[in-house]
């Protein structure tokens, strides 16, 4: 049983490390800001959660696992929120996707205040 847990947590840690690296390389290589958001998403969601679950299997039933669950829940909810906030700020300040032709971008203002 211990052996199975050890192998499973090793596999999860390896997969998590791999996904973190893939997301980081994507963030370095992709052409513009809005595409880099996708790469950052890989790191923040699946990569982080797999690493934390791998650590949970090592820790067993203890206070450490409770802390790990708290961390993973927190990252699970705040990462998409932070990513959305960055994307929203970029869009509001007029940053345009580099790969989309100009005629395909909506020209209406996205500012909240201008609706009045």
């Amino acid at each position: 049983m211990e052996m199975i847990l050890y192998i499973a947590s090793g596999a999860l840690l390896a997969a998590g490390s791999f996904l973190v690296l893939v997301g980081t390389i994507g963030m370095l290589r992709l052409p513009d800001f809005f595409t880099r958001l996708h790469a950052a998403g890989i790191t923040d969601t699946l990569g982080a959660e797999l690493l934390l679950i791998g650590m949970m299997l090592q820790a067993g039933f203890s206070l450490i696992t409770v802390k790990l669950i708290l961390i993973s829940l927190f990252i699970f909810f705040t990462s998409p929120t932070a990513t959305h906030a960055v994307a929203n700020a970029a869009r509001t300040m007029g940053l345009k996707p580099a790969l989309v032709p100009d005629e395909d971008i909506e020209t209406t203002s996205v500012r909240r205040g201008s609706a009045k």
Binding site: T24, M27, R36, A40, D44, A82, T83, V86, A89
Partner: peptide
């Protein structure tokens, strides 16, 4: 851009 830097700092 600024947003690339904020995204990288968050990551």
């Amino acid at each position: 851009t600024l947003f690339d830097r904020v995204l990288a700092a968050n990551s």
